[in-house]
Amino acid sequence: MSIHRVLAASSLVLLLAACTPAIVPQSGPAAVVSPRTRAEPPMPLPNREGSLKFAAMGDSGNASQGQYQLATQMAKTHQAFPFELVLMSGDNLIGSERPQDYAEKFERPYQLLLDAKVLFFAALGNHDDRNQRYYKQFNMEGQRYYSFKAPRQNVRFFALESTYPEPTQIEWLERQLKESTDDWKVVFVHHPLYSSGGRHGSDIMLRKTLEPLFIRYNVSVVFAGHDHFYERIKPQMGIAHFVLGSGGRLSAGDIDARSPLTARGFDADQTFLVAEVFDDQMHFNAISRTGQIVDSGLIVRRQPPAAPAP
């Protein structure tokens, strides 16, 4: 029996499973992604009261059958795991962006989630028209880059426009990160700092610009897109990185199998991610178009460096 069948059979049950923490929270300076291999069963999402539940995806807006089917799967998941917001890591509308395209590439596929008052927060990708920042449903309030506090738990999200990481934006980011006293600092951005994609791969230049800030100011998790597959990167400098670029588009077979970066990769189907933050822990499940849990795990947030002894 293939791993996918095993995962599919257990996925629904596990999504609804009661909380049984698999890993004791750890302290220390670095985020820790639980060591998992492909053979392990998926880790359940605790689905506990008071937690922050959210979803994330990227490269969704191509109006493909894959996008619509994944959106249906997201709505199904939402019934069992009521996430209240969705992070979009760019390429939200691919191709033309006329009013009818907003409907066809966003409003229609996610109608059930929008009806359920789920809020979408978008970052701009390389194919996105900057006018998207004015679109009410993307909650960008006219900004190309912005941050917002999550409605629950001590979490702040930062959306960046990675196509133009100009000094003004970087200075803004540094100010925001420095001023944030939130336990969790989570960045979503289009271009991945780390990726094993054959088509695009890691954006080294962006990494050089952003990573020092992420390290200095205690960012725990980075969600990206651009490469059209799911990949969880082995923690880099203590930070968890995800590539979530198969929200609609899919580059089947694009993950470099020899890449030393990959903790878990899945490029056979469209995928989105659901996550749950409670205190210092973030559980996550990556779910495919057909409802398979293709990856799961637990991240413990990075801790600020201890103050020097008097």
Binding site: R98, P99, Y102, N131, Y134, Y135, K136, E141, G142
Partner: peptide, 15 residues
Amino acid sequence: KLPQEATPKQIDQTQ
């Protein structure tokens, strides 16, 4: 003037 929470139609018309 485009409001910060615009509809796609408003975005298109302004553009």
